[in-house]
């Protein structure tokens, strides 16, 4: 049978991330960063680096810990819960492992406080390209690397106030050729960690609404007393609980890189971000007009969920991957839940 329990080490890293983000990526810091317009809060980014959160997926040959996708998914979930503005997930979860697979001793990998941005055919715009130590670029299936000052970056205002997107114009003369890269694996990781962030986004949206519904009084009672309110939140929580094991199973089997594992990643991305989107929408409704105002923060979760829904493959793309498994794999009673049977 599959084992969904997490080991001590996994729980420890997740707890480290949770605590760090709770201290350094909350309402005060969101406000501070939105007002200053700064790319990042240096103290927070340094703390992330010092705690080694960026090293989990890197192979030991690159100075990393050589852990797996499930380990990093737990960190990504916490990043979602904190609406973390920093590029930890894409840099350490997608870009750095891709670079390490090509050149384990690349100098960019030596300093964990240096972020790496990544362009992917599924994502026309590049997140946090201006503050990256290097940008991994895509051309005809090959990977290239350039520093931000070697390319032309045009900022594009995202609906998510913390998602700093850029259009990148570049030519091969001012970039370094890295060679063939596993773009499919990058996509799977990007999609999986988006899904993991979705779980965190969803849970935070529900938690905020639960707190508000306990506190906000109308008609002489906390609004959470009314079934019209509490049923909404119960529905949101149900979706989260069912999405979580899908994300974990997708993480555990991502390395297979076959039609089954890809479909599972797609499944995870669809359900986790639907849960996040739904939870954020419900949370806004429960907050009433406060939820529609900028200062109450719930909108950050709606907007991050939206941004991640369309990054690393749209819902259409991922539904097609699920359909591909259905229509290309043998069917019949002996094939039902094939991977689970094989592992039983």
């Amino acid at each position: 049978m599959m084992d969904f329990t997490l080991n001590e080490e996994q729980l420890m890293f997740a707890e480290t991330a949770r605590q760090l983000f709770a201290d350094m990526s909350g309402p005060d810091q969101w406000l501070e960063q939105m007002e200053s317009g700064a790319a990042r809060i240096e103290a927070r980014w340094n703390a992330i680096a010092e705690n080694g959160l960026g090293l989990l997926l890197l192979p030991e040959a690159s100075g990393g810990m050589g852990l797996g996708e499930l380990d990093f998914a737990l960190i990504a979930e916490q990043a979602g819960y904190a609406a973390l503005p920093d590029p930890l997930v894409e840099s350490a979860g997608v870009a750095a492992p891709l670079l390490a697979a090509i050149d384990p001793e690349h100098p960019l990998l030596a300093d964990p406080s240096v972020s790496i941005a990544i362009q992917h055919p599924q994502n026309p715009l590049v997140a946090d390209a201006d503050v990256a130590g290097g940008i991994i670029l895509h051309r005809d299936g090959e990977a290239w690397l350039a520093a931000p000052d070697q390319v032309t970056l045009t900022p594009r205002e995202s609906i998510d106030p913390f998602r700093r997107l850029f259009a990148v114009a570049w030519d091969t003369a001012s970039a370094t050729r890295l060679g063939q890269a596993d773009w499919d694996l990058a996509l799977d990781r990007g999609a999986l960690f988006s899904a993991a962030q979705g779980l965190g986004l969803a849970q935070r949206a529900v938690d905020m609404a639960v707190d508000y519904a306990k506190d906000r009084q109308q008609f002489g009672k906390p609004i959470g007393t009314y079934q019209a309110v509490k049923h909404h939140l119960a529905t949101a929580q149900v979706a989260i609980e069912f999405a979580r094991p899908v994300v974990q199973a997708a993480a555990a089997e991502l390395a297979h890189g076959d039609v089954q594992s890809r479909a599972r990643v797609s499944h995870a991305k669809l359900v986790a971000l639907e849960a996040a989107d739904n939870a954020a929408r419900i949370s806004i409704q429960v907050h009433g007009a406060m939820g529609y105002s900028w200062e109450v923060d719930v909108h950050l979760f709606l907007k991050r969920a939206l941004a991640l829904t369309n990054s690393w493959g749209t819902p259409y793309f991922h539904r097609q991957r699920v359909a591909q498994r259905i229509f290309t794999q043998p069917t019949g009673p002996d094939q039902t839940f094939a991977r689970e049977i094989e592992h039983a």
Binding site: N123, P124, L125, P155, R156, E157, S158, I159, D160, P161, L165, L306, A307, N310, S311, T314, P315
Partner: peptide
């Protein structure tokens, strides 16, 4: 509307937060 627009719907026209 947002599902139709996809990623394009998440990018404002200019540098201000105007939609």
């Amino acid at each position: 509307a947002m599902d139709v627009l996809g990623q394009a719907g998440e990018i404002a026209g200019g540098s201000a937060y105007e939609w």
